[in-house]
Design a protein around this nucleic acid. Structure first.
Lengths: 151, 151
DNA sequence: AACGTACAATTTCCGGTTTTTTTGTCTCCT
DNA sequence: AGGAGACAAAAAAACCGGAAATTGTACGTT
């Protein structure tokens, strides 16, 4: 893994984040620089950069920081093998929700257990349901109904 | 297009919806039976069945009726060529959001214009951003920093 | 240059309440 | 059987004030 060692100034230039954000995120544990100088100055690795960039993209997509935090929490809970979700996973964002694509499955990064399923292409299913109904022997239901109308 | 003509009883048996739901949805315009008898009794077509089934799946996935309504509104607005979203489109649902896959694009069924984009696989992008920075000529930034620490 | 701290402005979240929507049930009518 | 209407329970949405989180800005230090 290419490490790299980027100073704060470089990181702000590369990622578009402000220095304030970097230090706050560092303090609150969202993205902590992999190394530090003896003086306590941050040294971001290359993968740190990727995580930072991912977080910024999420922010730009109107996902709040707090939501990002919660997503990361649940992701590390649901996918324990994933060390750095922001780096390793393929995320998709829409207004409110962060989707995670992991293998075949896709699920909500927040709630985790949510399935995802296609709604259309139900014709076959409906046909099946039809055929599973033995009592549905009425071939001309309209006629029966029309008779009733005249009652 | 296979029409079919299903009575209320048949529809409840096939779709799993209650009669109450059918009449309410009919009154409020969510899914209106394609035909009616002269007496005003509903006659659902085959595509109606599919729409009903799709709506039920969304309900079962904890998408509220109101949200379904709003999705349908915005979908017919954003995709005017689509007559029956519940029948023609491929939808994907997670907790809060309904995604629509239409061709290559995927977007939020509610807000419509929201793009969807992958967050990960940013390594190349970050590398690009790096290379676009001429001032980043510092090959050994750590050294420069360490010097400072001793000041 | 980079960090820490402090203060303020803004945004987001949270808990409770109120309002609207949806559904069930019952009754009567055709 | 199927529809219409009335009433009530349940679910969802809208609203709202206070708390918390995030960010900007300024100042001081190394």
């Amino acid at each position: 893994m290419k490490q790299g060692s980027f100073s704060r100034q470089q990181v702000t230039a590369i990622t578009g984040l402000t220095a304030r954000q970097l230090s706050y995120w560092r303090k609150t544990g969202l993205v902590v620089p992999q190394h530090c100088t003896e003086g306590g100055h941050a040294r971001y690795s290359f993968t740190d950069l990727i995580a930072l960039r991912a977080a910024k993209q999420l922010l730009d997509a109107n996902v709040s920081l707090q939501r990002i935090r919660r997503c990361l929490e649940s992701l590390t809970r649901f996918l324990p093998t994933v060390q750095q979700p922001l780096v390793e996973l393929s995320l998709v964002v829409t207004g409110d929700v962060v989707l995670v694509f992991h293998g075949e499955r896709a699920f909500d990064a927040l709630t985790g257990q949510q399935w995802v399923f296609p709604v259309a292409e139900l014709a076959k299913e409906v046909e099946q349901l039809q055929q599973e109904l033995p009592e549905q022997t009425e071939l001309f239901p309209v006629d029966a109904e029309q008779l009733e109308e005249y009652a």
